[in-house]
Write a protein that binds this DNA or RNA. Sequence first.
DNA 1: ATAATAGTGACAACTATTGTCATGGTTATT
DNA 2: AATAACCATGACAATAGTTGTCACTATTAT
Lengths: 317, 317
Amino acid sequence: MPKSKRLMEMMMVVNQKRKFTVRELAQEFGISQRTVLRDLQELSELGVPLYSEVGPHGGYRVLKERILPPIAFTEEEAIAIFFATHALRHYTSLPFETESSSALGKFYYYMPEDVRARIDQMKSRVDFVTPMRQTGSPYLALLLDAAVQQKVLSIDYESRGGRSEREVQPIGIYTKNGFWYCSAYTFSYQSIRVYRCDRIHNVLPSPTEPLPSIRSLNLDTMDLNHSPGLEEPKIELAVELSKEGVELCEAEIWSAPYVRKREDGAGSMEGEIPRSEIPYLAKFFIGLGQDARVQRPQELVDRIRQMLSVLVDQYGG
Amino acid sequence: MPKSKRLMEMMMVVNQKRKFTVRELAQEFGISQRTVLRDLQELSELGVPLYSEVGPHGGYRVLKERILPPIAFTEEEAIAIFFATHALRHYTSLPFETESSSALGKFYYYMPEDVRARIDQMKSRVDFVTPMRQTGSPYLALLLDAAVQQKVLSIDYESRGGRSEREVQPIGIYTKNGFWYCSAYTFSYQSIRVYRCDRIHNVLPSPTEPLPSIRSLNLDTMDLNHSPGLEEPKIELAVELSKEGVELCEAEIWSAPYVRKREDGAGSMEGEIPRSEIPYLAKFFIGLGQDARVQRPQELVDRIRQMLSVLVDQYGG
DNA sequence: ATAATAGTGACAACTATTGTCATGGTTATT
DNA sequence: AATAACCATGACAATAGTTGTCACTATTAT
């Protein structure tokens, strides 16, 4: 085998075995140990992060870093990857221990000049914004690890009611609108709850046995907005909207699917909502003022009236 | 230079010039043309997508695809890149013409086995969610292109008041909370406005001369929430917050920096706000109900009272 | 101590790489 | 139709690089 090809192959082999000895490689490639040593040095010079230890149980290792063999990306693909990774800079916490900037640097460095120029021009003209929060979420990596390995954790959580310990078996973590959430089976409630990660004040391994039935659950099969299994009774919602009201509701994630627009631009909103949403909806529709007229359910109308009377008291009629 | 190194270098050179002739390369590397031909064939066999055309003005070309030479990513970096790119699947519209999935496929394919395994496990347990909107934004690529090249466009925009044509010079586009926005100098207003890209119904090149002073503006130097140059007079805000109020305000992007927390969990909010924000703030603080007591400015209190009286009329006291 | 491992240097044998030359083919330009 | 600018391939001797072997050193776990 010609040397140049051998080097490429060796790159791959070395990547897969993380640990190996010179003798092993020599046998595998059918060359002398001396040559293997020479080759490994060349790989080193080419940037493969090898290091070696002498003595029994010694050998070569590839450091935590790995090599990706030459990958052919189209220009558009490279750009997409660049900007996606660039967007990570908006996150104060990530579940990976990484300065994503170092990865970007490498990526960027190896791009053909003209692609790099194009990226430079675009860099200050496209952005994927995520609301930046000041509160960090230090336990993301631990929670994710527990989800992957299906371990039970004991977390110190600050909910509305105050701080408390709970045993949870994490299903997964996700970020949305600048916050990180952890969806987890909670033993004390015997159901799945969502926790905001920045309100988790401590995480410890727990001796509790993990529930095997939770293992097969994951984020893809879950609706990230509601806890499954908590099938709440739904009640009917009916709201009249002005033209402005229509626009505002279409801009809201949860409400957009329910909005019906009439020809004149005004419209209505109809759909089924869980009863537990009433407090939120009351606030929401009060915020819309004249642009929304809630008609049903009566409970929502009552709630709005009640809130109004409190407010009137507070601010003086 | 040893052949193996020459091949690596040639990979890079060939990547940068998209078009080249055998003679050029021969001179550049100080080798014979015959050797260049042999090398190019090897590169071909190694996967570099070369093709050649004979005759005058012929020569070699690298197809649209490019090669990235071996890049050393740490495991964590590779994972971060993977998930960042994976997150793009939540977007219905992107300014790049790409199936980011193809790039991901390649990336994934070339990873060492155990990293791939780790990603597999994590894939369904981490996510970067972006609200998925039904409305697409078909002109993103055009708008971005105009921003990069500083061209003037004539857009057909649907604002509150209805549809109208306007001449704009885009500064950049960004996505936030599921929508794409385009920040652009608008000739008819002689100021910078932000447009929601899904409300842009048509985009045409305009013969208007671009303003050179806009060229130097970009998204990084802009506050994405406000138009620059519009230095509005600020007025003082003072609000008392209950414990719940503190939590709610800390969860809100704009208000979080102003919140002061006291020992008992309750707190206050103080800061300067532009007068134009009063309508928004009125809605916001009404939504907080008893958990917020606005004290200053008086204009805000008045506005709240006014809104309340309208609401009381509407829903019956 | 011993055995297992990496690391270096020297050198002859070997092999691959290279340049040159010869030849042929395609295509745009004149 | 001639020409010039390209790519393409084969043959072969000169050269340059690669390889294996051997001899030696150094480190470390057992």
